[in-house]
Design a protein around this nucleic acid. Structure first.
Length: 429
RNA sequence: UCCCGCGUAGCUCAGCUGGUAGAGCAGACGGCUGUUAACCGUCGGGUCGCAGGUUCGAGUCCUGCCGCGGGAGCCA
């Protein structure tokens, strides 16, 4: 029977077999150490030459990095072992050999690592980051499930466009133009009258030629949509949501965050309420601080960093100028120059992790906006039907999974927080 | 698309004002009872991104191209 490394402390002094991959081999004249990783943890196997048959010693000392093996031996507590327990090995079986494993336990360049992403996944920091991602994904589903949201899977191949045509990946669909979805929002909105509270969670695609630590061409986005929520309700939901998933990561991913050297104090301050500052207030304060900024322009990366530096937790910036935002956002009745929307800026330079808004629910205003932006009206016909048959106030937002996990883990580049990143210039592995 | 930086051994890098190629790691072999990215010794390993140019002589200087990284814009 095979045991999991995670459970070994419960089997002290028993003879067990563990299976996994060799992380390190250290051979001396009369003693050797094998470090084995099995996906649940790592354990050090100790081999004493004088106590082993020659063939076992020969096999064990010829093992190479990432060879797949089964080790049988007695579990012993030992303060010299990482993890407190080690395995005094009595036999070794080679399951899969590994010759000249490319990734060494030392520094490598980004390009080399990304070329070997299929192997890089085995490295400790990568495992930690991806485990946090998986926990956050589960936390997201749990959050919405517990609040009676219905998950709606929206299409990835679409014939219509989301926000702006310049950033779509185009493909051929039996002779017709098709695009990879850059948002599921318009579809989620349609499901709203069916279920009242819905969300979608899937990959989205942007053909932006961005080369920064915050951009992927394929990223995962969570987009809730709630009937009868106004813009303030929308921000309340975002606040609850973000606090919930951060708390879950802190609660369940302690060892991973420690390995990633993430200061838990920076995450424990993520509690409601988040500060809320209107776009206009933010512009005023930027100007007061001597950072000349003209009302009407969209906030750039520099401005966002400045604004988030004013606070110790994520900050909402709401009600941007109409010209800076998408056509489907509802005009602000108190200031028609602006729309009812918000971004959520994460601290520590992590930047924008959420964009949300109350949607325009008036048919004529929405049509006018589509024409203003020179968008193809026919493509939005089905979307406009939503305003023809029982239109209703509703709001939603999109949270970028990789940016959020990047902020939670404190990793410098979000490409590490997705198993196989798709970047400009990178389509494989 | 624009701005800045980088490209030398399998990997990470050094190589000064131009003088003819180096280290560590990895690999192979040898040594060492307890290592934590073990350590010590020996050996093999190069189209200095590509193409031109300047020069007696270019890894080094100049031009163009290619690739990569960071940033801007745009966005999550």
């Amino acid at each position: 029977m095979s045991y999991l490394v995670r459970n070994l402390p419960r089997h002290a002094d028993e003879t067990v077999t563990v299976t996994g991959w060799i992380a390190a081999v250290r051979v001396h004249a009369r003693v050797a150490f094998l470090v084995l990783r099995d996906g649940t943890g790592t354990v050090q196997g100790v081999l004493v030459k004088s106590q082993l048959p020659t063939d076992v010693w020969e096999l064990a000392t010829s093992l190479t990095q990432e060879a797949c093996v089964a080790l049988t031996g007695v579990v012993r507590p030992d303060p010299r072992a990482p993890g407190g327990h080690e395995l005094t090995v009595s036999s070794v079986a080679l399951i899969g050999a590994s010759e000249e494993y490319p990734i060494q336990p030392k520094e490598h360049g980004v390009e080399f690592l990304l070329d070997h992403r299929h192997l890089w996944l085995r490295s400790s920091l990568q495992r930690a980051g991806l485990r946090v991602r998986a926990e956050v994904e589960q936390a997201i589903h749990d959050f919405f499930y517990e609040r009676d949201f219905v998950r709606i899977d929206t299409p990835i191949l679409t014939g219509s466009i989301g926000e702006s045509a310049g950033t779509l990946f185009e493909t051929d669909y039996f002779g017709e133009r098709a695009f990879l979805a850059q948002t599921g929002q318009l579809y989620a909105e349609c499901a709203c009258p069916a279920f009242r509270k819905v969300y979608c969670f899937g990959p989205t695609f942007r053909a932006e030629k961005s080369k920064t630590r915050r951009h992927l061409t394929e990223f995962w986005m969570i987009e809730p949509e709630v009937a009868f929520n106004d813009s303030n309700d929308n921000m309340d939901l975002q606040e609850d949501f973000v606090c919930s998933i951060v708390a879950r990561a802190v609660e369940r991913c302690g060892p991973e965050l420690e390995l990633l050297e993430r200061d838990p104090v920076r995450l424990e301050t993520v509690k409601p309420p988040f500060p809320r500052i209107s776009y206009s207030e933010a512009v005023e304060r930027l100007n007061d601080e001597g950072r000349a900024f003209e009302w009407g322009r969209d906030l750039g990366a520099v401005e966002e960093t400045t604004i988030s530096s004013w606070f110790d937790r994520p900050v909402f910036v709401y009600n941007y100028p109409k010209g800076a935002k998408a056509f489907y956002m509802k005009e602000n009745p108190d200031d028609p120059r602006t729309v009812l929307c918000n971004d959520l800026l994460a601290p520590e330079g992590a930047g924008e992790i959420i964009g949300g808004s109350q949607r325009e629910d008036d048919l004529d205003r929405l049509l006018a906006r589509i024409r203003e932006e020179d968008l193809p009206e026919e493509a939005y016909n089905w979307y406009l039907d939503l305003r023809r048959y029982g239109t209703f106030p509703h709001s939603g937002f999109g949270l970028g999974l990789e940016r959020t996990v990047g902020w939670i883990t404190g990793r410098p580049h979000i490409r590490e927080l997705v198993p196989f990143p798709r970047l400009i210039n990178r389509l494989s592995p």
